[in-house]
Simulated assay, not measured.
Amino acid sequence: MNYISTIRLAAILGALSVAIGAFGAHGLAPVLEKMGRVDTFETAVKYQFYHTLAIFMVGLLQVKFGQSKALNASVYAFLIGIIIFSGSLFILSTTGITWLGAITPVGGVAFIVGWVLLFLGVKPNIKTKA
């Protein structure tokens, strides 16, 4: 994924984060309160937004460091984390399907993998003297 695609993905996910958060605070408030899942929904939105910012940061790093397999993989790991972690919490919060809580940690692991890949993808540009 090149830096333009990465930054555009972050922009889309950022807009979705705001829209989902606003919808949860206004449109879904009665449902979330009834289910007792307001905090769960807010956690899902926060983690989605934090990792959207991470994806944006990777896009900026791709400009500086160029294409890197590790940086590219970190974007996908963050995206998978958002889908599994935040997605499972969104569904749990609105439907009460509790078994989805069992897959939430898989998304958390994807987030961790994304951060490790980000670490590995940023390498100093060392130039040797001839």
Rank of each mutant, 00 (worst) to 15 (best):
M1N: 00
N2C: 09
S5G: 11
S5C: 02
I7K: 02
I7T: 10
I7D: 03
L9K: 05
L9M: 09
L9W: 05
A11H: 01
S17W: 06
A19R: 04
I20C: 03
I20P: 04
G21W: 00
A22G: 10
A25E: 09
A25S: 15
H26D: 01
G27T: 08
L28M: 09
A29T: 11
P30K: 07
V31T: 15
E33S: 09
K34C: 01
K34M: 08
G36L: 14
G36S: 13
G36Y: 14
G36C: 13
R37M: 08
R37S: 12
V38T: 15
V38F: 03
D39Q: 14
F41W: 09
E42F: 00
E42M: 02
E42I: 00
V45C: 13
K46P: 00
Y47I: 05
Y47R: 07
Q48N: 12
Q48Y: 08
Q48H: 15
F49N: 09
H51A: 08
T52G: 01
L53F: 11
A54V: 10
F56I: 08
M57Y: 06
V58F: 02
V58E: 00
G59Y: 03
G59R: 00
L61P: 07
V63N: 02
V63H: 02
K64Q: 11
Q67S: 11
Q67N: 07
S68P: 00
A73D: 08
A73H: 04
S74N: 02
V75C: 10
Y76T: 09
A77Q: 02
F78I: 01
L79A: 12
L79R: 01
I80W: 03
G81T: 03
I83L: 12
I84F: 07
F85N: 09
F85K: 07
F85H: 14
G87Q: 11
G87C: 11
S88T: 03
L89M: 08
L92D: 05
T94L: 09
T95W: 10
I97A: 13
I97N: 10
T98H: 03
W99A: 12
W99G: 07
I103S: 12
T104E: 13
T104R: 14
T104D: 11
P105C: 08
P105D: 10
V106F: 15
G107R: 01
G107L: 05
G107M: 05
G108V: 01
G108L: 02
A110N: 05
I112C: 08
V113R: 14
V113T: 14
V113K: 14
G114S: 09
G114N: 08
W115L: 14
L117T: 04
L117N: 04
L117H: 06
L118W: 07
G121D: 05
P124T: 04
N125E: 13
N125K: 14
I126K: 07
K127E: 13
K127S: 12
K127A: 12
K127I: 12
T128L: 15
T128E: 15
K129S: 12
